[in-house]
Structure formats: C-alpha cells, structure tokens
C-alpha cells in the first residue's frame, strides 16, 4: 500500500509539464462553451469608479487615455466599454488619446463595440487625438495647451477646426481623466494634483497592487483592476458581456492553480513527514 502511494506521488512529480498546460487550456476553454455563471461581487473601489463616472454632468468633457495595446484588450476593453457607455448615457463629451503605439486599432475596436460612438457629432461631442509620446512631459504640456502636443487630431484635422478642442484646450476645461491599463501616474502627477482634476480608471491586474496606495490616499477616486474589475463594471451597469464570461474561465484556471500548488507540495510534505531526505 505504501509503495503504491509513493509511486503515485513520484509519477505526479515527474509528469510531463505539457500535460499541465493542456489541462490549463481545457480549463480555460470549457467555460466559454458552457458558461458557469459564477457570481461576481463588486469591490468598493470599482463601485466608486462607476458612481464617479455617473456623477459627470451633461456637456462636461472627459479625457480618456487609452494606454492599452491590442494584447491588453482581454483585460481592459470590457471595462472601457462600460465606462464610455456610461459617459455617453450621462451626455458627456469625450476626448480620446493614448500613448500606446497601436492606440488607433483600440479606437477602431471601441467603435465596433460601441456603434453609437459613430452617431455622435465628431469634433463636437467626441474627438480622437491619437497617439502621443513623452509621458509626464507631454501630460504636463497638455494641461496648459493641448494644441501644442496635438496640432491636429488623429485624422489630420487641425485642433482649431474642432469646436470641442477649442473648448477643451487646458486641464481646467476637463471634468475628469480616465486612464486605461497603465499610465495613471502621469495624470495624477500632472493633472490630478496641480489642477485638482478627478482621476480614476482601470488598470491591468499586474498594476493592481501598485495602484492601491493612490486609491487609499485619495489621488484617484476609483479603480477597477483587470478582468475582474471589468466584470464588476459590467455587473454595475447591468450589462454582462465579454468580461463576465471571461471571469468564469479565469476562475477555473485559478482553481486549477490552487489544486496544482497543493498537489505539487504534497509529495514534499509527505516525504518530510516520513522523514525521507
């Protein structure tokens, strides 16, 4: 009996790692085909973000920084869709920009996911400024003169020809800055602190613990983190979509990880209990 047990642990220990990868892929795939519908609880930080966005008044201008490459869509696009839809419901005017080189592709995707963006009067209600470089230096200069960083929008129209940008050329003209994925620090440092512009947004999961101190200190008023945050926003907006379905898959993968960590450590613990070297 003892030798049989040892064989099982020994075989588990020496199992080809590809088996684990295939199990992981299956665990991630199944919930897409058969959604489980695991409940999603909303964290206070996500609720604060959503309620803050709901507090935007009609006609107020919001700057949306899409610091999100195509590879990060799986994490943040769902949340961005909820944010933009909520802002449109509030009647806000939106200025989009981004310091990811493929920001134009993210803009296209956002338009596919929110068709009513195309129904808006471009230049009056919405503007896409496109890519910018320069991080803090650029954000700092945008706060005093947006047109010096963007002489023209993404499509080449001079900013002076866009009524919205004539109205929104300095930080004081904006009601809020929303960041996506990363790049939040420059907005906190260059817009939030000096001009008292409310800053919030959603970060990739990796940034969750780095952003938490800014939330605690009140430098950002709300925060949604990763797919979980996006799913929470979808739950708050009562519009379950991609992120909600994706959370099932991710929960399954995490469950698998917990099981694998326990299984991987059991042989070691058992050998120690048995007094083996």
């Amino acid at each position: 009996m003892m030798s049989e047990k040892k064989d099982i642990w020994d075989r588990l220990d020496k199992l080809d790692r590809r088996v684990y990868f295939w199990i992981l892929i299956i665990a991630l795939t199944v919930p897409y085909i058969n959604p489980i519908g695991l409940p999603i609880t909303v964290k206070p930080s996500t609720r604060a973000l959503y309620e803050g966005i709901q507090g935007v008044n009609e006609g107020e201008i919001v700057l949306v920084d899409i610091f999100m490459s195509v590879s990060t869509w799986a994490e943040c696009m769902g949340g961005l869709v909820v944010e933009v839809n909520t802002l449109l419901d509030q009647g806000a005017k939106l200025v989009f920009l981004g310091d990811s080189i493929d920001v134009a592709r993210s803009w296209d995707r956002l338009n596919e996911l929110i068709p009513r963006l195309q129904d808006l009067e471009y230049g009056e209600d919405v503007v896409f400024l496109g890519y910018y470089a320069g991080q803090d230096a650029a954000a700092s200069q945008m706060a005093v003169d947006m047109s010096s960083i963007f002489p023209a929008d993404h499509f080449g129209t001079p900013l002076g020809d866009l009524p919205l940008m004539v109205e929104a050329n300095t930080a004081d003209d904006y009601a809020m800055v929303l960041f996506t994925a990363e790049g939040e620090v420059k907005w906190i440092q260059q817009w939030g602190e000096p001009y008292s512009i409310p800053v919030a947004g959603m970060g990739i999961a990796m940034k969750g613990s780095a952003l938490a101190p800014y939330l605690a200190s009140g430098d950002i008023f709300g925060l949604a983190v990763g797919v979980r945050g996006a799913a929470e926003l979808e739950a708050l907006a009562n519009a379950p979509a991609d992120a909600t379905i994706r959370m099932d898959a991710i929960s399954m993968s995490h469950l698998l990880f917990v099981i694998l960590i326990i299984l991987a450590n059991l042989p070691l613990i058992i050998s120690k209990v048995r007094g083996e070297s």
Binding site: S71, T72, V227, R228
Partner: peptide, 16 residues
C-alpha cells in the same frame, strides 16, 4: 498573484 491573473486573462483572450 496579480501577474498570474494578468497572464491568464491574456491567454483566456487568445483562447476566446
């Protein structure tokens, strides 16, 4: 843990 969550989200996105 957050990094693992991020990588899993990317993998889930590609599987989708």
């Amino acid at each position: 843990g957050n990094t693992v969550l991020f990588r899993m989200a990317m993998l889930a996105g590609r599987i989708e």
